[in-house]
Structures are given as C-alpha cells and as structure tokens.
Design a protein around this nucleic acid. Structure first.
Lengths: 223, 223, 223, 223
DNA sequence: GCGTAAACGAGACGGTACGTCATGTCTTCAC
DNA sequence: GTGAAGACATGACGTACCGTCTCGTTTACGC
C-alpha cells in the first residue's frame, strides 16, 4: 500500500459524483461523456479514469449513493411499512438522475457480468434487506406467521422475500419508467392492498410446492 | 404521399430489422453501431438513416416485432391465463436481443418524449390489451365481478387494469433483468397466487377510494 | 444512330451550362455539385449524366463556351493586335466563373488524359489559332519575315507559335490567378513591348538551332 | 501560449507532409483524402485536423516545401541564370506531386482569401525573390542598367520584376501543365532569348509611362 | 391514332469521404 | 506520486455527394 506521493484529493470523489448526477439530470445517460463530467467537476479526465474504470461504474456509484437514503422506519403495521417504502422508492425513481441512469446501467449489465455483480451489491442487496426487515417486523407484530426453523422453512422464506422484492420493485419501476405514471398515495395504497391481500395465497403455494418435493420442477404435483 | 421516384426496397426493411436483432444478440446494445447493422443487412448506412432517425428507434422497432408474438389463448381459468402470460413474457425477456435492448430504449426514453410515445404505442399498449382481454374473459367466466356501467365503474376498471399490468410486467422484468433469476413454472405459479389472491382487496380499495370522492388525493378518506 | 424515341430537350443543354456557370460564380469549383447544378437548371440529375460523364467535362464545356467570345480584329499593327488579345484574355480570366474553373480542370487533367485532350480541343487549340492568325497578319504587313516553305521552315514556324502562345497565355493567367494583379492597359503595353522586342532574338535562336540540326536535344551545338 | 499538456509529436509533421506528397503522386489531387493521408502517415485523422484546417492548406504546405529547393547559383551571365532557373522550375513542375496539386490549390484560392495569402507567402514571394536576385546580379555585372534611387526608380524596378516573374513562371507553367510539352534545353534557350531580347523595350516602355505621369491609367501617354 | 422507344422527374440505392466527437491512454510540467 | 492539460490512436457518428438504378410519365416518330 503506497505511503509516498501526493495523497488523493478526497473532495474530488464527491465532486465527481455530484457532477455525474447533475450531468445526468441535464443531458441524460446517452449524451453523458466522461470529458463532460471531468470538466464539470473541475478535474482532469485522468483523475476520473484513475478512480473508475469506465462510465458504467462511475454512473452506478453516483446513483447507488442515492439508494442509501431509503429507510424503513417502523410505521406500526405491515401495510403502512409497505406503503411507505413504495412511496419512497417511487419518489427516488422519479428523480431525473435516477430515472435516466438506472435502466441504462441495468441494460449494460446484461453484457457485463462485473457490472451486474456491482449492481447487485450496490443496489439490489440493499433494497432486498429492507424487504427482509419488513418481514421480520411483521412477524414480530404477529401479522405474518413465523418461518419454521428447518431447511425447508428457510428456503421458503427466501423464496418469499425474493418474490415480494421483485413484485414491489418491479411494479414501482414499471409504473414510473415504462407506464410513465406517478406513484402517488392512491396507487401505493391500492398496490399495498393487492400485495398484502395476496401474501397468504402465495405462502400457501410455496408450502404446497415444498411438500410436493420438487419445488423447482416444471411438472408440479396435482394440488 | 409521393408517387414518383424509385420505390423503397421492401425487403430491406426486414433485412435491417433482422440484422439489428442478430447484432443485438452478438454485441449487445452498447456496442451496437449503425454501420455494423448496415453492413450485416447488406445495405448502405444512408438507407438506414432514410428509414429510422436513430439507433433508438431502429432497435425499438426491431424488438417490438418480437412482442407481437405474445398471445393470450384461453386456458380455461384466470389463474391459468395469468400463469401462461407470465411464462410467455418471461421467455420473451430471456431472449438475448430483448434482454439487452429493452431496458436501454426505456432508459433513453426518459430524455426523449418521441421515443417514449413510440414505446408506448409499439409495446406497452399492445401488452396492456392482453391484460384487458384476460379481465373480460374472467368476468365472462364469473371469476371476477362485472364493472358497473357508469363513469365511476369504467374509471375503476381502467385503474385496475393499469395496476395489474404494472405488477405483472414489472415483476417479470425485474426478476429477469435485475434479479437475474429465471421465470420458471414454480415462480409463475407463486406469483399468480399472489396476484389473484390480492385482487379482491385491491378492487375493494379502489371502490373505497372512489366512494370517498377524491381518488387521486393524498388525503384519503378515513373509512 | 437512333431515330425513334423522345428527342432530347435542346433547351436543357443551355440551361444546364448556364446553371453551371452561375453556380461556379456562387460557390466555386470545390463546392460545386452535380445535384446543385441539376436543381438550379430545373432538371433531374439523370439528365446531366446522360449528357456529360462527370463534373469535369460539364464544367469544361460550360467554361469553353466563354472562350468562343475571344476575337482578333485587325487593329492595324502587330503590337496593337497583341495588346488587344492580352486585354481581352485578361478580362475573360477575371470573370469569376472562368477564374475558379479553369485552373481546376487543368489540375484534374493531369490525371485524366481524356480531359486533357478535351481541354486542348475546346480551349487551347482555339486560342492558338488566334496566335497563328496574328502571325499571318503581321507577315502580310511585313512586320515579321515570311516562313520558308520547306519542312524546316514549317517546323520553325510551329515552334515559334507555340512559344508565343505559352508566353502570352501563361503570363496573363499567372498575373491574373497567381499574382492576383489586374491585366490593365499599362501592363498589357509593357508586356507587349517585351514580347515584340524579344521576337527577333527568339526567331534567330530557333534558326540557329535548326541549323545545328538537333533542335530537340539536350546537347546543343557549340555554335 | 500553452505550457502544460502533452506536446505535439514533432516527427508527425514531416511524416504527414511526406505522406501527402507520396499520395499526390499515386492518386492525384482529386482522389486524395485526409483519411488516406493519415493512414499513410501512421497518424490519426484527428491529428491532421489539429494541425491543418483542411485539405487545401495541408497540400499547399506539402508542395511549398518543394519550392524551397529552387536555387539561383551564379551561372556567370543573365542568360545562363534565366535558362537555369527555367529548367529548374520546369523540372519541379514536371514532378507528379507538384503537377497535380499546384493548379488545384490555386483554383481553390479564388474562393478562399486565406488560402490565397498562404500561397503568396509560401510560394509566390519566395520565387519572386529569385527574380530580384537575378536582376541585382545582372546589374552588378553591367548587363542591366542600375535603377535610379528615387521613388520612381524603385517603382519601375518593382513593376519590372513583377512582369518578368509573371512571364517566366507563367510561360513555364503553361507549357508544362496546359500545353503538356516538356521544358527542355531547346525551349528554355529560345524562351530566354525572347525574354532577354525584349527586356530593353519593356524597360523603355515603363520609363516612358512613368514620364507621362499616370503609369496605371488606361490612357497612356503618346509614345 | 397507336405502338415503340427514348428522354424525363423523382428519388432510392450502395458507396466513399467528410469533419466532429468520445473513448481510454499517454506524455509533459507543476505541485 | 498526484493532478491539470492536452495530444494521441481508434473508431462511430450523421451528412453530403457520388454515379447508378428503377420507377411512372411524357414526348416524338413511323407505321
């Protein structure tokens, strides 16, 4: 680890990420250039490349920081927690820097495994943690049954969390970016009703499949 | 409506769209170039630009054609219909040309209104039609209550369809592209259970809001 | 030898040449395009290509027509004839369409033998005829000695005419296009004095060489 | 006055000019492309454009370098000096790179003032210097009368030099490029005889005009 | 007056080159 | 050794013309 030489300018990091975000707002992903970001941050292109390998990673880091803002305060009930996180997530996706960049890096990630892992680590896993936290709280409140302690129970819990995560994040992303409609209180409330209303049936389905013994097979047992 | 001049080569259109799809598979969205597509299609670059204004529109048209394959045969029950369309949609998104391109054009569309409309027309509206068809069939079978004939009823039906569409499409897209997990029978069945299980609660919520009279307001009735 | 079919539109020829000249004035040789000329002439590009193989030939014909205006009226003396033709030629080269095009086609002709021949036929030979006419008149007036009738005499006469032609045309072209100075009366008069003053010495030199027997060889006699 | 940044590669300049000249020989002015030159020089197109604004200026610089080779060694007499420079200049114009390019840039210069000045500075003025050098030597030898020291004398000397320059350069260029005949010893000798033989008359004409007082006017004094 | 045949306008076509721009690397000088 | 500045090789961009082609339409002439 180097001891000598001029130390890196710590402020530069934040200046670069800020410049990246504001450039995203102004010109969007497609027109964003490294040279542009460097100029805006008052930094040489060399400095950028010393810290990020390419545009994708830079933008990902710039956007990922925004996701750290997502919180899950205890709102007292599962429904309130879900509705709250849906609203927060919707607001986050409505910001222009997120809107334009998130899908772009996901698109790039389909041909770049390293980027895919970085997205998973920087964004997906952190969001999924919120889902798990919500489940645990609801179980503590008695709104949801406890998972059984055995292997099958853990597996079912994981599959359940994955499903819920894809449904919440997917619906919010799709409504915001594809349908182009706002995630307002009304929609959040209706969506939450759907989700919570459907949970028991989904959990039952998971349990049924587990009992049939071949949970991942195409040919599922006759229920 | 010009009559004179040499007519456009009709075969070229298909050759170009084919070349675009196959290039997407090989190099992905990010590395796709107009020159590359032209060469692959055995066509001059100028011919591409005569027909599509830019890469986004070309790729959109190339990918949109794939969505025309989506069908909704009557599988006998609402659950079977949902599960079927989820599987089909998941399979479509798993194709490399779709995977790499769809998110990219959506990302671009956040800064290009014309592109957004084109996506809506070429992809979103066609998919949404499937949702409406499924609802009608389920109502005919008696699985879902009929919409009331008045203005409020129509509005509620539209909001319902929008919600279902965002939830289905969003969840499938998210699982495939962001989570990177396959949409297999098991997941489709669990997801379908969640959706159908939650529908009554969602519909009830919509009705409640409508009754309160300010369906779009933040301050919803105390009911 | 076609007899049938629609005959060519005779007016188009003149319209195209006019359009070419006026386009030359406006945009110069370098920016002149066939499409531009066609549009200006109210004619389709195909019509141009049916009549001229390329830009060089078209422009050459357009400019060559201007050279037909050059006349050599009998001004009463060799000096007056020379001065007159120098002034006329200078005026012709000062026109913007000539100025920009003449050097350009000559430049092209260094890599295009067909064009070189066409230039020779359309421009050079016609001008050279003026020189010969001037010589004959001067001989008739007794200002210049008669050529001897034998082979050597004809040859000397031809070499003499070639020299005079290159000197006159060259000096006028160079002053106009390279030096960028005007060919006014004063210059024309001085140049004429130089030319006529030098003629006897030049003719003597030619005669001397002819006597030495190897007029075209590098190794000239020790005389 | 930049101090920082990577300095330009000095070798590239010469490599580019060399590549330009050799490309001129191979394909001529008309087919010469910037991309081709760049490739031949082992340099990127951007590097070309960083140093020369366009093809005209690049080619001019490439060709101008050749004119630096022209020398005027003292050959002992005015006639020998003239004959020598005519031969050298003829040989220079006979080289394919000069032949094809010189007229082309002159043609372009009729619509590009900056190029005209550049030609004047890079080529015309340097050649004209040779003429002046030759005059001075001849005066020193007593072959030509000295200029008078007053303003009128200087002016006459300048006009004389201009005339001689246009006659020599024009005749050589015209014979080489337009007539397409070689500048051999025989022609050079005859041309020299003409020029030197005519000089006294031309100088007398200039003196006469100067005495009449309106040297540049159309109406010249009665000879 | 009807067919034949060429010329015509329009404009699409496969190409080539343009001049610009962005990428990611490298080279120099200043700190 | 870091940073700003900026030159560099590479390669895509979108445009402009090239010269050719394919249409549908418009003349003239000869039968």
């Amino acid at each position: 680890m180097s001891r000598t030489g001029r130390p890196r300018n710590a402020e530069a990091d934040e200046a670069i990420l800020d410049a990246t975000r504001s450039a995203l707002v102004d010109v969007g992903w497609g027109k964003l250039t490294m040279g542009h970001v460097a100029e805006r941050a008052g930094v040489a292109k060399t400095t950028l490349y010393r810290r990020w390998a390419n545009k994708n990673e830079l933008v990902l880091d710039a956007v990922a920081a925004l996701f750290d803002e997502l919180q899950l305060p205890d709102r007292g009930s599962l429904a309130a927690d879900v509705e709250g996180v849906v609203m927060e997530f919707g607001a986050l996706l409505d910001r222009p820097e997120t809107k334009t960049a998130l899908m772009a890096v996901v698109a790039e990630s389909t041909h770049d495994e390293a980027l895919r892992l970085r997205i998973r680590h920087a964004i997906v896993d952190r969001q999924k943690r919120l889902v798990e936290l919500g489940r645990e709280r609801a179980q503590a409140r008695g709104e949801l049954p406890l998972d059984s302690d055995d292997k099958a129970g853990e597996d079912a819990a994981a599959r359940n969390a994955d499903l819920i995560f894809d449904v919440i994040a997917g619906a919010v992303v799709h409504r915001t970016l594809v349908s182009g409609e706002p995630v307002d209180t009304s929609w959040a409330r209706t969506f939450t009703a759907l989700l919570i209303g459907g949970l028991p049936a989904a959990m039952q389905q998971i349990r049924t499949e587990a009992a049939a013994g071949q949970p991942d097979q195409k040919r599922a047992g006759s229920v």
